[in-house]
Amino acid sequence: MVQHEIAGCNVIPGCWTVQIVESCNVTYYRPFIHAEALMGIFELGSGRNLVTVTIAGKRPVAASETRSTESPSAGDHVRVSSIEASARDLQDLAVLWSIGEARATDVVGAACEALVAGLDSPALRILAACTRGEAEYDVPDLLPAALDELGLTFYPRDSEAGREAAVRALADQMLAGRLTPRELALRIHQRFGHQLPLAERLAELDDEYDILEYGDRTPAQIDAEVTAEARRLASGAGNDPIPRS
């Protein structure tokens, strides 16, 4: 009886449950989030690095507010580190999205995590409230505003600065353990070829992986060189690669 009459039945006849959830998001939840964001605008005024007040009374902060000259307590240090990490992740996801290396839904997920960590702005709230179906259409409009309000940088799609920032973001991902050295070199090579001076050495190292069986180098040696190059890029160094070993 349970299998035939209960399992899989719809909440409203003729509508899948997922349709009801999506409709609730579009017709109720998102207007609520939008109204809440507008309340923050009217209360505090608009502008760069906008700080808003949540309904719960918590005072969120923009990315630039996490830098203080005062000595923080242990709890404050953990919170500041979490906020800075969330801001960095949002910035990285934004730049990877701008070159097609991340999905719009990934950006929405990073916006949600940033809100949870304590970052806040009107556009960030609306961005975090996007559904999967809305993300592709809304992220291009909401992301620049959210980054601007948080004091972060928006890179236009396929801009030179955006491509270089994306290389550094991918290097960060490898150093964080989200990519292997081989995967980093491959993604850089596939995305930029040998056309981007900043990433030229990684593209060359991807070629070296392909000819390992014909040379005298080991995978571990190339991995080490990719890792060193990733550290150089993540540190913000310029276009001069580490000398070849």
Rank of each mutant, 00 (worst) to 15 (best):
E204M: 11
Q173L: 11
Q190S: 13
L186Q: 15
I188K: 08
A161S: 15
T180A: 13
L175M: 07
A203V: 11
E200V: 09
R191E: 08
Q195F: 05
A165D: 06
A165M: 05
L170S: 14
A165I: 03
A171I: 09
A203Q: 04
G177Y: 07
Q190I: 06
L175K: 05
T180K: 13
H194A: 11
Q195H: 12
L186H: 10
E164G: 04
A171W: 03
A176T: 02
H189L: 02
R187E: 13
G193A: 02
P181V: 11
P181T: 09
T180H: 08
A203D: 02
R178T: 02
E204D: 11
Q190D: 14
L184F: 11
L184D: 09
E200D: 13
E204T: 11
A203G: 15
R201S: 14
D172N: 14
L202D: 00
R168C: 03
A199Q: 07
V167Y: 03
H189M: 05
M174E: 09
F192T: 06
R163E: 12
R191D: 04
G162S: 14
P181S: 04
H194G: 06
L198G: 02
E183N: 08
R191S: 15
P181G: 01
A165Y: 02
E183F: 07
Q195A: 15
R163N: 12
V167T: 11
R191Q: 14
L170W: 04
L198Y: 03
R187I: 11
P181H: 03
R168W: 01
L179P: 03
A199G: 07
A185N: 09
R191F: 01
H194C: 05
L184H: 08
T180Y: 06
P181M: 07
L196I: 05
L196Y: 05
F192L: 15
V167I: 12
F192D: 06
A185G: 07
D172R: 15
E183S: 14
Q195N: 14
P181E: 06
